[in-house]
Design a protein around this nucleic acid. Structure first.
Lengths: 340, 340
DNA sequence: GACTGGCACTCGCCGATCAGGAGTGCCAAC
DNA sequence: GTTGGCACTCCTGATCGGCGAGTGCCAGTC
């Protein structure tokens, strides 16, 4: 049996009311607060069908109805109208992201902004190295046998790494190495560098070969292999809103999951450009997060992607609002990065 | 009235039992589990005195006793024997801190180690810029009017900042600026740099004055004025151990406080070298943390201080254990930094 | 056929009540 | 100063009944 318009309207009303009040919603309350144009008895019949179809359920006999994950899903896919940001929110975003000092600052501000606007836990990934290009490589002699390698990416990320050389190395050699490395690698996407780095070693004069090989190893290791993703978290305190009712009684597993960067990266990764992805309840692959929902998006200058961001909260969350906010923040962040 | 040895022994037993069981401890249970050599009636008398003096209290009439903050304080100051680390713990520390890749890695590992060993929330501050010296300043041209300023400190911290120049700047000028800046500033403690930077500007040839002034502004701003401290947090999930009983019913305020870097810095700052500081309950100045205790220490190569670290948990915590762990980790971390 | 008012029924919630038990304070005796 | 004993307190957990929100169903109406 397919659901007619009114039943969908009832579902929407249930979701909205439940999200707002956090209490099971009954047929009587529904007709009072929404102009459905029918009596509570009719709504009850509709509810029975919706329950039959698995979109809502009763916590116990003779209690109101609560949306199921399937209900939220339907709501998000077909029922929620896009909620435009309020001017105040727009202003907040612009003010918050104005005049950042450096990349850390940008990410820091963004994540706090996101947490504040959505009142959920916010996650922002730093621009991914894998998706960055080399802007410049700097070699700074620290001692006669040690060089600090500093890589500056076009996304603003700066990575450094200490390189232990096999033997003493003259300042002139450092200059030469720097020139060569930059000549070859500057402007290249990090993902494309491995063969180029290898070529660098091969092209080297025998007496410099050892040093260069050493440098190359660290280069590859740092920039590509353990291409570490970084991210920032904010708003964990928001998990405690609404008592311990959400999250089936315990914050524990959620907090634990939030400590694992790998998990977080998975959560906010792999989203098509300019879209928003919503994972509801056990659509999350992580067991500890079966009681949460995640709204995530990708960001980057223009239509490219350099990283992801998102918010996490109870399945009982304001999806339209959060989706709008996440999308807007992602776009602002992309624009901001494009400016540099 | 002063407390005789047995009363102190009773207090210690109460603290130890309460920390272990998280339940008010009664006179009967005490004599059973500790060899006090007296009857429960005697212990009851002692308890009455201890309560009189404010070291323990009853949650309600006819319940066991619970230590007060004053009781914990006395316990920490006079009653707790130093608990040496187990070989397993030592090994864990050594394994955890072996072969770090860079400073981020060091801090990251340290904070997770601390959280894991103490089963509390751990905080580790990055080496403070204010206490670092300049090892090298690098100027990397990004475009004709933009330079990226990279500062490498002796503590391993690397800070970068984009400098917008008043006009186009030639590569030769960059080289010259770099030479001058390093000549003057390398090896200097950051705190001492402001007059030196000013001198740099004054010494400049008029045609380079503008550029140098611009650079100087950013230098001062980045390195000294908004000398930003960074830190890392781990183990927030540990707050949920022991139900919501600790923290007077709500994690909320605690989680909120943990989001404020300023607060965290205050918590773990200002500790004498080679000592450990313990703040119990409302000895903390932060209202949100009145229900928590903090064990903190400073670290640095040798006897110097470059940063702080610590753990935070319920007042009902294993003080001797946590003190030992914090101290040990601080020392290992200091040694590790000394090696570089 | 869809909607509505009415009504009996279910069942969680809340407060009251009560027994059990852990723990105390006090006192007399040693 | 210490101890055994005893009356007392009061928290905990279980039980119970009334209340009320909410439902499902049915007969009647448009």
């Amino acid at each position: 049996m397919s659901l007619d318009d009114r039943k969908l309207e009832v579902l929407r009303a249930i979701v909205e009311d439940y999200v707002a009040t956090q209490e099971p919603v009954g047929s009587k309350a529904l007709v009072e607060r929404h102009q459905l144009g029918v009596s509570s008895a009719t709504v009850r019949n509709d509810m029975a069908v919706l329950e039959e179809e698995g979109y809502i359920r009763q916590p116990h006999t003779s209690a109101g109805r609560v949306p199921t994950n399937a209900g939220y899903r339907l709501f998000v896919d077909r029922l929620s109208r896009v909620k435009p940001l309020s001017p105040a929110e727009r202003r907040a975003i612009e003010r918050f992201l104005a005049d950042p000092v450096d990349l850390d600052d940008v990410v820091h501000r963004t994540v706090r902004l996101l947490a504040q606007l959505t009142r959920q836990v916010a996650v922002v990934q730093y621009p991914s190295l894998a998706r960055s290009s080399v802007r410049h490589l700097e070699l700074v002699p620290i001692s006669t046998t040690r060089i600090m390698l500093v890589m500056i990416a076009d996304t603003g990320r700066v990575e450094q790494r200490l390189v232990e050389m096999p033997g003493p190395i003259a300042p002139a050699d450092v200059t030469e190495l720097r020139r060569k490395v930059n000549e070859k690698l500057a402007g290249q996407r990090l993902a494309d560098t491995p063969p180029l780095v290898q070529a660098l070693v091969d092209d080297c004069s025998p007496e410099r070969r050892g040093t260069m090989a050493c440098l190359a190893t660290v280069l590859l290791e740092t920039l590509v292999e353990r291409s570490e993703e970084r991210l920032m978290l904010a708003g964990t305190a928001n998990l405690t809103r609404g008592g311990v009712l959400d999250f089936q009684g315990s914050l524990r597993p959620v907090l634990e999951a939030l400590e694992e960067e790998v998990i977080l990266l998975k959560l906010i990764g792999e989203v098509e450009p300019s879209t928003t992805r919503v994972r509801i309840g056990d659509e999350n692959e992580i067991d500890n997060l079966r009681s949460t929902s995640v709204v995530s998006a990708s960001y980057g200058p223009g239509a490219t992607i350099v990283g992801g961001l998102g918010v996490l909260g109870p399945t009982r969350m304001d999806y339209p609002g959060n989706i709008a906010t996440v999308r807007a923040v992602a776009r602002y962040l992309g624009d901001l990065l494009a400016q540099n």
